[in-house]
């Protein structure tokens, strides 16, 4: 194996990611997200053991290694930035919600533990942002699109993949804000802006990879949908996350003062911070540093979510009609 090439790839891929290192989250935030993550992972382990046999254990291990390796596949987008995969939605689409969550958690554990990519004490937050949220959104695919035409399935998977990156970034930004590591007024629009772009790469690769598998091994994708059958519960969980992103992004971008207040009231911040709006430094992505435009972009997410909801309702109604 070519270590030099690997190292270079690793650095290219890792740097633009949202793996939080130790020290960047305050103790309460880090611990709260450990508790949430542990609870969800225990649930996922119980469900997986109920649903899957021992054949799935090596499968999940190799799939985790697959996601890790697939994160190195990149393609140039424009101006020196490149698109690549986070993989949460792809994992949930291929393996089902619970197994997808476990696989993503393992990817982030290995990255943190063996490569110091992401801290140990903040690993709960990292697993939550990049593994659990993304896989939960990916599970929406089974509820919404698994039985639709090929084109619809691909588009739904692509949109979910994009949304998963944005949602993960939003959670990361909120955690950093609540930790007092960066003011909400800067970190929320900056993270959302960068990842709305990065998410496009995620969406495109997810779609193309799914299309490839549909063409070469259609049995896999069809069988997965039936076996893991992401139920109605997952549609609700996914939509709640999507709505959370859609509602909070505009609020957070337009009124970070409110969040700042919440952080202080909850005692998260040791230091009171007054975000000086007129002082946006240059490196905040130019077209997103301006609050109105990021609000508009957030509105676009809102519109997409509304479309998804309408789609889901239509599907449920049709099912009812077919059952009657």
């Amino acid at each position: 194996m070519n270590i030099a090439l690997l190292t270079r790839l690793w650095e290219e891929v890792v740097v633009p990611r949202m793996h939080i290192p130790d020290g960047f989250l305050s103790m309460p935030v880090a611990l709260i997200f450990w508790v949430i993550t542990v609870a969800l992972l225990l649930l996922a382990i119980r469900k997986t053991q109920q649903q899957l046999g021992e054949r799935q254990i090596p499968l999940m291990g190799v799939m985790a290694a697959f996601i890790f390796a697939a994160q190195m596949i990149n393609f140039p987008i424009a101006g020196g930035t490149s698109g690549h995969l986070l993989g949460g939605v792809l994992a949930a689409v291929m393996l089902g919600p619970w197994a997808g969550m476990l696989v993503m958690a393992c990817v982030i554990i290995v990255q943190g533990l063996l490569f110091q990519d992401g801290g140990l004490l903040v690993m709960g937050a990292n697993i939550f942002n990049m593994g659990l949220v993304t896989a939960a959104l990916g599970s929406l695919y089974h509820g919404l699109a698994a039985r639709q035409s090929k084109g619809v399935r691909l588009v739904v998977a692509g949109v979910l993949a994009w949304l998963s990156v944005v949602a993960g970034a939003l959670f990361t930004a909120l955690q950093l804000g609540f930790s007092g590591t960066s003011p909400f007024a800067i970190v929320v629009p900056a993270m959302l802006g960068v990842h709305m772009l990065i998410g496009i790469g995620e969406g495109l690769i997810t779609m193309a990879a799914l299309a490839f598998v549909m063409q070469v091994r259609p049995d896999l994708v069809a069988a997965e949908a039936v076996r893991t059958g992401g139920g109605r519960g997952w549609v609700i969980v996914g939509l709640v996350i999507a709505l959370f992103v859609a509602v909070l992004s505009p609020i957070a971008s337009a009124d970070p003062d409110g969040l700042e207040r919440v952080a202080i009231d909850m005692g998260f911040e040791e230091v009171a911070m007054t975000p000086p709006y007129e002082l946006f430094p240059d490196y905040v992505i130019p077209f997103l540093g301006e609050t109105p435009l990021s609000t508009i972009l957030a509105g676009v997410i809102g519109a997409l979510v509304v479309a998804l909801v309408a789609f889901a309702v239509g599907r449920l109604l049709r099912q009812r009609a077919a059952a009657a």
């Binding site: 194996m1 070519n2 090439l5 690997l6 790839l9 992972l41 225990l42 382990i45 997986t48 053991q49 254990i57 090596p58 999940m60 291990g61 190799v62 985790a64 290694a65 697959f66 890790f68 390796a69 697939a70 190195m72 596949i73 476990l102 696989v103 958690a105 393992c106 990817v107 554990i109 290995v110 063996l114």
Partner: peptide, 28 residues
């Protein structure tokens, strides 16, 4: 740490090098 998680991690780490080789070949 739950046994299932540790077993998945063990498999993952074991085959990571193989798949990284694979992806390196694809990229090359």
């Amino acid at each position: 740490v739950p046994a299932l998680l540790v077993t998945i991690l063990a498999f993952m780490v074991r085959y990571l090098a193989v798949l990284l080789d694979e992806v390196t070949r694809l990229l090359r």
